[in-house]
Simulated scan of single mutants.
Amino acid sequence: MRIASWNVNSIRARLEHLRTFLETASPDVLCMQETKVEDEKFPEEALGDAGYRVVFFGQKTYNGVAIAARYGLGIEDVKKNLDGDEDDAPRRLIAATIEGVRIINVYVPNGQAVGTKPFAYKLAWFERLGLDLAAHHRPDEPLLICGDFNVAPTNLDVHEPKRWEGQVLCHPDERAALGKLFAWGLVDALRDKHPDEKVYSWWDYRMGAYRKNHGLRIDLALVTPPLLARTKDVWVDRSVRELERPSDHAPVLIDLAESQA
């Protein structure tokens, strides 16, 4: 099974890019973040025409998450947002079980700037994600958390570590919050397969960052040990980032072998 995760930065603005990606990369499952569209306006028919069933959880202008799966694959036990979220809370998480794999698709808050209320909210959101994991899952289950984490795990994931030192996306407090997920039992699948490779998934639109490859790896695929044992490879597909008017993120893909259970 091939699972992809992509911050599309507005699904309606990037719909043609999405069609291209589905045709060329051919994922069985696609997790999307920052869809930026209300549920009643989600382009469900376009995904259906491409051969995918989709569940979505969105809002106008900001946030929004969705999971699409090929027809024939069941999408079961859908969960939206974290435990305790009110109905009007920002829509940042959608989870489902597909082919026995629990997939949690997240769009972690950006945090804006260190020391601000949005930064504190980001750290609290990470804490609540950890509580959800502990309440509903175990590390010995086949589980994937993927999406835009808005944290570069280490300096290897940052083109210019000195410039980003102490800043949002690279702050020690954010990395510590992410580290608690690792301590619970998750593994950074790409880094496991490619321990020393400089790989980025996000490039600022400004200053020719993509052309210079001045990026950060903030889009992650975190897996439990049972799923890591099935992981054949993980990589970033930069092809759609090179299209006209692209998302500032590139998709992360993970290929899984069939379960032996």
Rank of each mutant, 00 (worst) to 15 (best):
P153C: 01
K41I: 01
S239E: 09
L18A: 10
W202V: 05
I103V: 14
R138L: 08
W6M: 11
N7K: 12
D248A: 09
D39K: 06
P118F: 10
Q33N: 13
P27Y: 03
A250C: 11
V234R: 00
A221R: 04
S5Q: 12
R217S: 10
F126P: 07
M207S: 13
V78A: 14
V187Y: 05
E160H: 09
D140H: 12
D88Y: 06
P172W: 05
S201H: 15
N81V: 13
V108E: 08
L82M: 08
D83L: 13
G74E: 11
A124Y: 03
D140V: 11
A221S: 10
L82E: 01
D87L: 13
V101M: 15
Q112I: 00
R230H: 00
V151F: 01
G51Q: 02
R128K: 11
L178P: 03
T154Q: 05
K232S: 05
F149E: 05
N150G: 09
D83F: 07
D196F: 13
K193F: 03
N63R: 00
I67N: 00
G185E: 08
L47A: 06
W202G: 02
T35Y: 10
E165W: 12
A13C: 12
E160D: 14
L131P: 00
D188T: 09
W203T: 01
V199W: 03
R138Q: 11
R128N: 04
G166K: 05
V223W: 12
L47Y: 04
D204S: 15
Q112S: 12
E45R: 11
Q33C: 08
G208R: 08
R138V: 02
P172E: 02
C170R: 14
D237T: 01
Y62D: 05
E165D: 14
R241Q: 11
P225E: 06
R175S: 04
N150K: 05
V236D: 03
R53A: 15
K212H: 15
Y200H: 12
L22V: 14
M207V: 13
W203L: 09
H194G: 06
A113S: 14
F42I: 03
L144T: 06
Y121R: 15
P90F: 02
K193A: 03
L253W: 00
N9G: 09
L73F: 08
R211Y: 08
H136C: 00
Q33F: 07
G48S: 12
L131Y: 00
E244D: 15
V65R: 10
V29A: 06
R241P: 07
E34N: 07
E242W: 08
R102Y: 12
G51F: 07
G64Y: 02
K80V: 15
P251Q: 06
H137K: 13
K41T: 02
P139M: 03
V55I: 15
L30Y: 04
V240K: 02
V187C: 10
H194N: 12
K79I: 15
D192Y: 10
V101W: 02
L22G: 09
F119Y: 14
Y52R: 01
G64T: 03
E258C: 08
